[in-house]
Amino acid sequence: MMGSRGTSAVLSRAARMRQKLQSALEASALDIEDVSYQHAGHAAVKDNANETHFNIKVISPKFEGQSLVKRHRMVYDLLTDELNSGLHAISIVAKTPKELGS
């Protein structure tokens, strides 16, 4: 039954990503932009695949004192399920509230 898969199947990937990032990172700002159309025909994008490429901009106090690699890993770790289910690449801008001005 389609209905029995629960709400997560109904939500778009973008919405699921938003939920996961927002709650875990306590993000003060979170932009998620689907740029999959820019990668149509990309070797790794299967036929008719959508929601494969995203730009994510996230401002979180939890990035304080973390290197860029660590911040990106925090984001990737939260999105492991998505990366294992067709999410191909994300472009990440990860800043702390203090860095916003720079």
């Binding site: 860029l68 690699v69 990106h72 990737y76 990366l83 191909h88 690449a89 994300i90 472009s91 801008v93």
Partner: peptide, 19 residues
Amino acid sequence: WPTFPQVFVGGELVGGCDI
């Protein structure tokens, strides 16, 4: 690190394209 490209310097991952 789940995506490519990946750049290593001195044996350590520096990051991907964004970084």
